[in-house]
Computed example of a mutant assay.
Amino acid sequence: MTLPPADSALGKLMATLPRPGRVEWIGVRPARGQVVEAMDAAIAVAGGGLQGDRYAGGSGKRGVTLIQAEHLPVIAALAGLDAVAPQLLRRNVVVSGLPLVALNGRRFRIGEVLLEGTEPCDPCSMMEAALGPGGYNAMRGHGGLCARILEGGTFRRGDALVVVTD
């Protein structure tokens, strides 16, 4: 994604966030179709993914997938469910407190890890089985963000997500 110049009016608006985000949940997908395992902490590998995740070995721009906590009730409502557990959505990190869409094309830190938002994380066909008929469409526009791991390290539930300004 190409961002507007940082000193432009739109660039300043796009760079202004109300507060840091917060990691609410972390999970890894050991293999395709297997249950997502919730974790208290994760080790991120630069240029790859999260240790223990099926994409850990070199997934590049999709090294980590994030979803916004505030979207979980929206997805549940659109799917006709009372609630949606993060594991069902097969994302690695649930973040609250800031709009993830604002991180596309930007660098940010969670714990020791430096990431860069690369693209929206669109839903996959597995959402029909996870959420029921229409589950794929319930997630459209709410699927979160993919990020590349630029510097590895550890992050934990409760860590802040802070945008890095150059």
Rank of each mutant, 00 (worst) to 15 (best):
R109H: 11
G60T: 01
S59H: 11
A69Q: 06
T118P: 04
M126G: 13
R107F: 07
A147C: 06
I110V: 04
A129E: 15
E119D: 07
N137S: 12
P5T: 08
F108T: 02
E151W: 05
P4M: 11
G134H: 03
M139D: 06
V93M: 03
R19H: 11
G105H: 11
H142F: 14
M39P: 09
I110E: 03
R19A: 14
F108K: 01
D159K: 04
T2P: 02
S125F: 14
A56G: 11
A77I: 09
D7M: 11
V163M: 14
M127T: 10
P120V: 03
P120D: 01
V94F: 05
G47S: 05
T154L: 01
Q34L: 15
C146P: 04
L13G: 04
L145W: 06
E119W: 02
L100G: 10
G132E: 07
D166S: 15
V101N: 14
V23T: 00
F155Q: 01
G153H: 00
G80E: 11
P133I: 08
G21K: 02
V28T: 14
A79C: 10
G80Y: 10
A31P: 10
S125I: 11
I75R: 00
A69E: 04
K61Q: 11
Y136S: 04
V163T: 10
L10D: 15
T165H: 14
T65M: 09
M139F: 00
L78F: 07
R106E: 15
R148V: 03
L3H: 12
L10E: 15
L89W: 01
C146Q: 07
D7N: 13
R140T: 09
L115R: 01
P73C: 14
M1C: 13
G97I: 03
V64R: 05
R54F: 13
G141K: 07
D166E: 15
P120T: 00
L3Y: 11
W25P: 06
L100I: 09
A31Q: 14
C121I: 06
L81N: 10
D7S: 15
I43K: 09
G52K: 11
L89S: 03
A130V: 02
A129T: 15
R22N: 08
R109T: 10
G57V: 07
A130R: 04
K61E: 12
G97L: 04
I67M: 10
R22T: 08
N137C: 08
V164S: 11
M127S: 14
P123W: 02
G80I: 05
L50M: 06
R157D: 03
G153P: 05
R106Y: 13
L78T: 02
V93E: 06
G144H: 01
G63P: 09
D82P: 15
